[in-house]
Computed example of a mutant assay.
Amino acid sequence: MPLLIRDYTWEETEKMMFITVPLKGVRANKVDLLSSEEFIKVSFPPYLFECLLYAPVDDQTSTAQIGNGAVVFKLKKQEPGMWYQLSKDEIVDKQLIKQKKEEAILKNQERAEQERKDKAEKKRASEKYTVNEMMKIEDDERERINNIKEYERKKATEELERWKEEQREMAEEEKQKILEEKMAEEARKREEERKQKKKKGKNIFEESAEGVPRREVGKIEVKFTKRVFPTAARESQTPQEEEWLQKQADARKALEVEDSDLTEEEKNPLFMRDKANEFFKAGNYQAAVNAYTTALRYSPKMPALYSNRAACHLKLRNFFKTIEDCSKAIDLLHPPVPQNAASRLKALVRKGTAFCQLELYVEGLQDYECALKIDPNNDQLKADAEKIRQIIQSSTGS
């Protein structure tokens, strides 16, 4: 049987009741407390303290502290006033104590259940707030990336328009130069014809008789620009000539990419492609990028060069450049036919991987799904696409 504690002490004020129960040398971690508005219990085997209070107290604001070899209860009275005694009667009915004990246990269970529900509700609210904040951060990041894309697009458009304007000006200057040369050539021919005619009729200016001086001949100098075409201006066909001149100007523009420091082999795009492949296998990805770029200067319509350069950018973590090169390769691989299916598959996977590295999982999943349409039996592609779906679902709280 438990040993009842008799050497407890208590004090009171108008509003508070203080009860001190000694622990008899028992460790604090073995103490079990139970309290309600009318009943308190302290159990630390083999000792037991039970008390049916004289009047009800506020169980929510009351406290119990364990330490320094005792349990100290600080009980706030529901109604201020002096009790002058701790319990209702000196001799307490055991049946009443049992009833109050059961009520206290039930109330503590209800309180614990309510605290658990409040804690769970608070946790759900915190998780919801966290998810909303993460979605907001992702939206802000997506908007930032879209703004960067829009800025780059506008910048590229402006540079393209500026380049077109420069090309138009250069073409106009070239056309004017050729026209001047045509005029000069026509003037030169007219001058030669005039000299020939003058040579044939020269005897009219020679002396006709002895002592009669020769007639003075005047000379007029005329300068003309050189004419490109051998035909006279009156016999030329202007539309065909201008078309030919435009082609010549375009050819001269193409020659602007010539680099005198490059050898003939380095001007061969296939040679540079093979060199770039060797750099890539050796792990020198920046050198491979430079070699692919040189090859593209001489063959800008080869989709494999863009796709391979995208693989190098992916290794170098240049994800935006990877997406740009993959997009160019896919554009050049149209129309989609079985012969270019493998190339389109590589470009789509690299582009999707770059999007996922930028945490743009929705865009990356779209590219992987397009790749699966090309090769629906590819188990690795299926597994990667499923991982991306799981990331998207977890980030949206589904």
Score class of each variant (00 low, 15 high):
4 L>K: 09
12 E>N: 09
30 K>T: 06
34 L>K: 09
40 I>R: 00
52 L>S: 10
54 Y>R: 10
55 A>S: 14
64 A>M: 03
65 Q>C: 01
67 G>D: 01
79 E>Q: 13
83 W>Y: 13
84 Y>A: 13
87 S>P: 03
100 K>N: 11
100 K>Q: 15
102 E>P: 00
104 A>D: 06
110 E>M: 08
113 E>G: 01
115 E>P: 00
116 R>W: 04
119 K>Y: 07
128 K>R: 13
132 N>F: 07
132 N>Q: 14
133 E>T: 13
138 E>T: 06
140 D>N: 10
146 N>S: 10
148 I>K: 06
154 K>A: 13
169 E>I: 14
194 R>G: 12
202 K>G: 00
203 N>M: 05
210 E>Y: 04
221 E>S: 12
221 E>A: 13
223 K>M: 10
228 V>W: 00
230 P>S: 10
233 A>I: 15
238 T>L: 14
242 E>A: 08
243 E>A: 09
256 E>D: 12
259 D>F: 01
259 D>R: 13
262 L>M: 09
268 N>S: 10
274 D>V: 12
276 A>S: 09
277 N>L: 10
287 A>S: 14
297 R>P: 01
298 Y>C: 00
309 R>A: 05
310 A>H: 02
311 A>E: 05
311 A>T: 09
313 H>N: 15
314 L>P: 01
317 R>G: 01
319 F>I: 01
325 D>T: 04
327 S>Y: 07
327 S>D: 12
327 S>Q: 14
329 A>D: 06
332 L>Y: 12
333 L>D: 03
334 H>M: 14
339 Q>M: 03
341 A>R: 05
347 A>G: 07
347 A>M: 03
350 R>F: 01
354 A>T: 06
356 C>Y: 04
359 E>S: 12
366 Q>K: 14
380 Q>K: 15
389 R>M: 06
